[in-house]
Design a protein around this nucleic acid. Structure first.
Lengths: 112, 112
DNA sequence: CCATTATGCAAGTATATGCTTGCAAATATA
DNA sequence: TATATTTGCAAGCATATACTTGCATAATGG
């Protein structure tokens, strides 16, 4: 389990996206995170390790607890990738919007 | 190879991101795409299948060619996920920007 | 019609991934 | 100090992933 370890790979897993979601608003320790999922603590611990490896979270040692804090700056890379194609889907939505607007207008025309 | 098949998984692979990049501006057939990579045509064909499965591209049959066209609307899902954390990294950049601006101003102060 | 070209399908392989159980280490609490 | 809690590490396992080679199919062009 030591291969490609980038932010795309990290967010590919739904459990890891959920973990990100959990700690984005409030840092939490490993056990607190693990309790919210059906899998074992070790499974979650590994997900946290992966997220840590690619810089999406930072672990702070507080006594015997290890508190996980979101570090989501790396997501800007994904944002940049997606945004360069924004026109591809935004224009589609625009088209749909225009189509619906036109449709609505035509219906109004019918009624009047 | 029939498991999780979502857009996050699709863009996790660098080859698939490269394929997306290639066909985003200009649709191309399978062989034309495969020629640009070091792996075999079959490997690329599988990547195309995966991209097709999750709706990131459409395949149009033209004679014996199969032309791949980008369909990047699905990326809006990734965009939505990333954007909800935008403050996490944008504020960091803002801080850095402000810091640099301040630094620059202070240097000006020294010189004058 | 036959050779070429574009492509898919199937089988096989090495490694990655996601998960488990078991155990050890470190810290906190009674 | 004895016990409980938080966590990491290691081994093992089933499946997914990324890739290969070999062969079949379908369309094009001489």
């Amino acid at each position: 389990m030591e291969a490609r370890r980038d932010v795309y790979q990290a967010i590919a897993d739904p459990t890891r996206r959920a973990i990100i979601n959990m700690i984005a608003t409030q840092p939490q320790n490993v056990n607190a995170i693990a309790e919210k999922f059906d899998v074992t603590r070790q499974a979650i611990s590994l997900h946290i390790k992966i997220l840590n490896d690619c810089g999406l979270l930072a672990v702070k040692k507080q006594g015997r607890d290890r508190v996980c804090e979101a570090r989501l700056e790396q997501l800007s890379e994904v944002s940049a990738f997606v945004d360069q194609y924004r026109q591809h889907w935004e224009s589609k939505l625009d088209s749909l919007e225009k189509y619906l607007a036109k449709l609505k207008q035509e219906r109004h025309g019918e009624q009047h």
